[in-house]
Design a protein around this nucleic acid. Structure first.
Length: 415
RNA sequence: GGCCCCUUCGUCUAGCGGUUAGGAUAUCUGGUUCUCAUCCAGAAGAUCGCGGGUUCGAAUCCCGCAGGGGUCACCA
C-alpha cells in the first residue's frame, strides 16, 4: 500500500480486512449451502492426498467432484466448506486475451471457507468484487486457468461477473521466468529509495506491454489515463529492462526544474556534504542534472564538491591519464600549466564566463589543446577523470577551493 | 501428465494480405572546436520459432509441430 501511495495510485474504497467481514462471507456461503451448491468436507489432508496420488497414478488430473462424500454432515465452525461445481463448457471474453473457451474438465470442487473460518481468495474475491460493484477484474496471468472456476461460482451465486482482463507477466531481466521477489526482484520501494521518480516508473511499467499504436514512448500519468486501453495490451510477457528504466528516469529528471530536483534530492547528498548553503547545492544540481539517471548517483557525481580530492587519486590520474592526449605530456609541462592556471584565475571573479574567458585565453597562450590543458586542470580540481563542464565546475567550487587544489596538485607533481 | 497462454532486431515494441519489416532502448561511429553526460546525425542489428497449406502475393489467414511460460492447495 505504501508502494501504491508513492506511485500516486489511489483507491476508491477500503482497504478491508477479511477478519472484519467473516460474517459476510458466511452469509454468502450459506446461500450456496441452501442451494445445495456447497458441502462440508471433513476429510483429512491425508485422505485428500490419497485422492491426488491415485489420480496421478492413473495419469489423470485430480478432480474432487469425482470423490464427493455421500452423506456430508451439516457445516459447522472448524470444518472447511467446499463448493459443489457444475462442470460445463465456458466461453468468455477477456479484454486482453480475447475470446477464450474451456471444457468441463477444468471445473472442479474447491474450498471456499477454510477450517479457520476465513474465506479462500477464490471465494472472497467474487463476493468482495460484487459488493464493491467492481466493473473490471484485472488479474495476472497465473489466474487464467482459474477463471472457469470463478465463472462457475458466479453462476451458482446468480450474480453478474465483471469484465475480465488478464495482464501478461513481467519477466526477470535475464530469464524466461516471471519477475518475483525470491528471484531477486526489487521492491517498488527499492526504486523509490534509489531515487527513481514515480512518473518514470509508471511510464516504464505502462509501456512494458502496452503502447498506444503511435511511436510515442513518454507518457504523463494524465496521458496514460486518457489513452490506456486494455485491448492494446500485449499478451506475451515482457522483460524488465533496468537500462530502459534508467533512461526513462534520466529523461524525467532532465525535465525537472532545478528547484524541484533540489527538493527530491534532499536525502541523496553525500555524507560529507555537511551543512553547506542551499545556493551551493542548487548550483551543483544545475551542473549534474543532465547526467543523473537516478538520485542515488548523486554522491558519486558530486563528492568532490564537498571533500578534497585524495592525493593518491590525483597522482594516479596524472601518472596514468585516461585521456590519450594528456598521456604524452611530461610532468614538468603539466606543472607549468597548473601554475599558469593558478595565475590567471588569481584575479578572476569566478563567474562562469570569466573563468571560460581566462582559460581559453590561457589555451591560446600555451598553444596547447583543450584536451590537454583542461584535462590537467580537471584532475587537480576534481580528482576524477570525468566531471561536469570544467568552467562551470570551477565557478561553483569557487576561488578558495580551486586555488588550494591547484596548489596541492602541484606539490604532488613536484614530489 | 491434463488444461491454458505465449513466440517480430540483445531488450521493449509497430505491424492486422502487397512496407526497403518502422520506432525506442542498448551497442558502435561522427559532430556539438574539455572529459563524462545531454543533444544532433549516422551505422550495425529481425532467414518475423519451425513445417505445411490457402492466395497472384503471408510476419499478417488456416493446420500441424517445436520451444518457452503458467496452472492443477484449507496461497493469493
Amino acid at each position: 500500500m505504501e508502494s501504491l501511495g508513492w506511485l500516486g495510485l489511489k483507491w476508491d474504497e477500503g482497504p478491508y480486512r477479511q477478519s472484519e467481514r467473516l460474517d459476510i462471507y458466511k452469509e454468502w456461503a450459506q446461500r450456496l449451502i441452501d442451494a445445495g451448491r456447497a458441502y462440508a468436507d471433513i476429510r483429512t489432508p491425508d485422505e485428500l492426498d490419497e485422492i491426488r496420488k491415485q489420480s496421478a497414478a492413473q495419469k489423470k488430473p485430480a478432480l474432487f467432484r469425482d470423490y464427493r462424500p455421500d452423506n456430508p454432515p451439516s457445516w459447522q465452525p472448524g470444518v472447511p466448506l467446499r463448493f459443489k461445481s457444475e462442470p460445463k463448457n465456458y466461453k468468455w471474453h477477456d479484454e486482453v486475451m480475447g475470446d477464450l473457451s474451456t471444457g468441463p474438465e477444468v471445473i472442479d470442487d474447491f474450498i471456499i471457507i477454510k477450517s479457520d473460518g476465513f474465506p479462500t481468495y477464490n471465494f472472497a474475491h467474487v463476493v468482495d468484487d460484487y459488493l464493491m460493484q467492481i466493473t473490471h477484474a484485472i488479474r495476472s496471468q497465473e489466474f487464467l486457468p482459474s477463471v472457469p472456476k470463478y465463472l462457475n461460482l458466479y453462476d451458482a451465486l446468480g450474480i453478474d461477473r465483471p469484465m475480465l482482463a488478464t495482464l501478461p507477466y513481467i519477466m526477470a531481466p535475464d530469464g524466461h521466468k516471471k519477475l518475483s521477489k525470491r528471484d531477486g526482484a526489487k521492491d517498488v520501494l527499492d526504486y523509490r529509495n534509489e531515487g527513481f521518480l514515480p512518473g518514470a516508473l509508471i511510464n516504464f511499467l505502462a509501456t512494458l506491454g502496452w503502447n498506444d499504436g503511435t511511436e510515442q514512448e513518454v507518457f504523463s500519468v494524465d496521458e496514460l489515463i486518457s489513452k490506456f486501453s486494455l485491448d492494446r495490451v500485449q499478451k506475451s510477457g515482457a522483460r524488465f529492462d533496468e537500462q530502459r528504466l534508467s533512461w526513462m528516469n534520466g529523461h524525467y529528471i532532465r525535465g525537472l526544474k532545478v528547484t524541484e530536483l533540489s527538493t527530491l534530492a534532499q536525502n541523496y547528498w553525500p555524507a560529507t556534504a555537511g551543512p553547506v548553503s542551499p545556493e551551493y547545492k542548487l548550483a551543483i544540481l544545475e551542473l549534474v542534472q543532465e547526467r543523473l539517471k537516478y538520485l542515488a548517483e548523486l554522491p558519486g557525481l558530486t563528492s568532490f564538491f564537498f571533500e578534497e580530492p585524495a592525493s593518491g587519486d590525483v597522482s594516479e590520474l596524472y601518472a596514468n591519464p585516461v585521456d590519450k592526449q594528456l598521456k604524452g605530456v611530461g610532468t614538468p609541462l603539466i606543472a607549468d600549466m597548473l601554475r599558469s592556471s593558478m595565475k590567471t584565475l588569481e584575479d578572476s571573479n569566478f563567474g562562469r564566463d570569466d573563468v571560460a574567458k581566462r582559460l581559453n585565453e590561457l589555451l591560446r597562450q600555451l598553444q596547447t589543446k583543450p584536451g590537454i590543458l583542461f584535462a590537467a586542470i580537471r584532475i587537480a580540481v576534481t580528482g576524477t577523470k570525468s566531471s561536469p563542464g570544467l568552467f562551470g565546475t570551477i565557478s561553483v567550487l569557487g576561488k578558495e577551493k580551486v586555488s588550494k587544489r591547484l596548489f596541492e596538485a602541484l606539490t604532488i607533481l613536484e614530489k
